[in-house]
Simulated assay, not measured.
Amino acid sequence: MTDSTPLSPAGDRHFDGLVEKFAGSLYGGPRGALRLAMLDELLPAMLQLDGQPLLDVGGGLGQLSAWFARRGHPVTLLEPAGDMLDQAREALGGLPVSFVQAPLQALPERAPGPWSLIACHAVLEWLSDPRAAFATLADGLAPGGQLSLMVFNRDALRMSNVVKGNLQKALDDRLEGTGRRQRLTPISPLCHERIVAWSQECGLSIHSVAGIRIFHDYLRQPPANEDDWQRLVALERRYCQAEPHWRLGRYLLYTLVKEGEQSCRENRR
């Protein structure tokens, strides 16, 4: 069964018409609660924050923008889906947030910067050309600027399929989604090695990395009570940056820093 949202002309998945799904089953459930709890702890530890302006690329319903805005950062939220942006505008009323309806690829024209701080969480995996999008983000950074990047982890998706018994699918490496179904399997899940390679291409250094939901998604049964939930959160916090556990986080969270002024696109030629 398909939903009402087609792929964009560029082959990217946008999320028009899915406000209720994101607000309810994704962010309103334990997966979203754990993701936000981990960000609440990891972002101050992984980033150098001094109230600098933030560009939130693909900011969706605005949870991340709200986190930064409430800590004194003026925020520009860039989001292609109009209904997502409307919901974010309503939820973030009174906070120092401005809104731009545009896809990531329009960043050079609509929010050129250069920016000392960019956040792009759970976006690249929904694009047909995530490498080019990564280059766009890198070029939008000021020298010394920080990119908080979170991507859907291809290795975790493989592990999840094995745990579920989808053995042939894992052997065939058929892990990508089509972008047209309600299950929302990303069309371009990414592995750590690819982020390392693209960072080198674009003159970015990886200052830190963590796994988000390194245990939760492999549980046979969800936590039975609040005490078990707190134990799970404690485990996630303890091991999210420890080898080898971070590598199987459902999402990988990076802090990338721009080393110089050369354009990423110049390096890729």
Rank of each mutant, 00 (worst) to 15 (best):
S8R: 13
G11D: 00
F15L: 13
G17P: 10
L18N: 03
E20Y: 04
R31Y: 13
G32T: 07
L34P: 06
L39A: 15
D40H: 15
L42D: 01
P44C: 08
A45Y: 05
Q48V: 13
L49C: 06
L55D: 00
G59E: 08
L61F: 10
A66I: 06
F68C: 01
A69N: 03
R70V: 03
H73I: 01
L77H: 00
P80C: 01
P80S: 01
M84F: 05
L85Q: 06
L85C: 07
D86A: 15
D86H: 14
L92G: 00
G93K: 14
G93I: 03
V97M: 00
S98D: 05
L104F: 08
A106F: 01
P108F: 08
P112K: 03
P112M: 04
P112Q: 04
G113Y: 03
L117S: 08
H121M: 09
A122S: 12
L124T: 09
D129L: 01
A142K: 07
Q146I: 00
R154Q: 11
R154H: 12
A156C: 10
M159Y: 12
N161W: 10
N161Y: 11
K164E: 13
K169M: 15
A170W: 05
A170Y: 02
L171T: 10
R174A: 14
E176H: 12
T185L: 13
T185W: 14
T185Y: 15
P186M: 07
S188Q: 08
H192G: 14
R194G: 08
I195K: 02
Q200A: 14
Q200K: 11
L204M: 03
V209T: 14
G211S: 08
I212M: 08
F215Q: 06
D217V: 09
L219D: 12
L219C: 12
N225C: 09
D228W: 15
D228T: 15
W229E: 07
Q230G: 05
R231P: 11
A234R: 07
A242Y: 04
H245Y: 13
W246V: 09
R247I: 00
R247D: 01
R250A: 11
Y251Q: 14
L256T: 07
L256Y: 06
V257F: 02
C264H: 03
